[in-house]
Design a protein around this nucleic acid. Sequence first.
DNA 1: GTGGTCTAGACCACC
DNA 2: GTGGTCTAGACCACT
Lengths: 125, 125, 125, 125
Amino acid sequence: MFNLNYGDRRPLYIQITEKFRELILTGVMNEGDKIPSVRELAASLAINPNTIQKAYKELENSGFLLSVPAKGSFVAPVKRTADPAKIEELRRKLRSLVREMRFAGAEREVVLSEIESVYKEEKEI
Amino acid sequence: MFNLNYGDRRPLYIQITEKFRELILTGVMNEGDKIPSVRELAASLAINPNTIQKAYKELENSGFLLSVPAKGSFVAPVKRTADPAKIEELRRKLRSLVREMRFAGAEREVVLSEIESVYKEEKEI
Amino acid sequence: MFNLNYGDRRPLYIQITEKFRELILTGVMNEGDKIPSVRELAASLAINPNTIQKAYKELENSGFLLSVPAKGSFVAPVKRTADPAKIEELRRKLRSLVREMRFAGAEREVVLSEIESVYKEEKEI
Amino acid sequence: MFNLNYGDRRPLYIQITEKFRELILTGVMNEGDKIPSVRELAASLAINPNTIQKAYKELENSGFLLSVPAKGSFVAPVKRTADPAKIEELRRKLRSLVREMRFAGAEREVVLSEIESVYKEEKEI
DNA sequence: GTGGTCTAGACCACC
DNA sequence: GTGGTCTAGACCACT
């Protein structure tokens, strides 16, 4: 499914949550997709199931996964009552980034097309 | 000059760097402009000079300011690269950020309006 | 671990960053290695922890370290670019520096021996 | 002869010293060359002669120029009893830079050829 | 006056 | 325990 980097000294469970975060945010995994069971992924990565458990727990806490007892874990629905503070932080980052692009010479249309393409992304899948 | 937000969980020195980044990238401050001295701004914001110093140092490291001992700090000469590689890098960051915003529940219109508002900001007037 | 030179007019925190840069660039320390904690190194060098913190921060900003709160600081994953543009930039810096050394009275042999000794330094052994 | 940058907020006399430093270090100007008189250069740059005076004074203090009363100012001989501290500082910079080049993938020969070419530079003129 | 360095000590969140 | 932020205050070199 993916690989761990043992050179990276970040804890394994963090590497795993990051990986899932990336897969979900990029639309490789979508709402409702079933993810591998703890034991399954542990075997596949050859690490302790407790580590996977901890990663899944983190992902559940941050709203990326939804665990259904006796059924498995699934990618959470996108709705998630938007945390205003989080959105505000992201908007701040967005403004700063767009200003930098503008300053670097990127045309308004280039930026807009990038946005559009993201919002079309998963619909095409 | 501007205000600090103590509710904001970002460190004060980061808030300050962001503010200057914004003032410079939006063209409110231009190359060569003298900015307030470390002690002056510290007094004006009622915080410790060391905190301002830290912010100015960061801004100098990232190329926004030029600090000259015994003279003052100035907005650095700009290099509007229009470097395609730089733009490409920023586009990648933008996509990633927009995906995250979308996932967090931000509507397409919200993101677009943010872009528009940046491109309407004054600049080089 | 290493020593500070109080005769040296360079700031302590710069001496520290240089030392780590050297240790990393010469391969004595490698990606993922844990480095001494802020307080540990401060005690060992008998200086204030804030000074170490400043050095580590600089090293993190320039991509040599990765600091993780509550975990420690680690040598960052390396990206041996072999980017021609980067090399070209370094060559320009080198020419300028060597001109200055020559002007300051350094003999060609002195400069060459410096190069040789660097290329004999251990690395990735 | 050269231009001043009024956007640059560094003092004019500093810009002038830097310019001469560059011209001398790159071998455009050589030992014994007569440089323009204070009044001459002041007129050519359309600035106050005092500013030129100050720049020349700085250059003389740092050993780049040699002023002969009633004769003019000349590029100083290269010998200059090499200040050991200065040389040491430059050697440190050189080592650091060469390490970085080596790390970036530059071959030993590339670095050496750069040195050689600098030491041949002025002889070809 | 200016930027810059360093110390001493407090406090925080996280693990 | 860890990294990180902030304050308070001393000192330096330079203009």
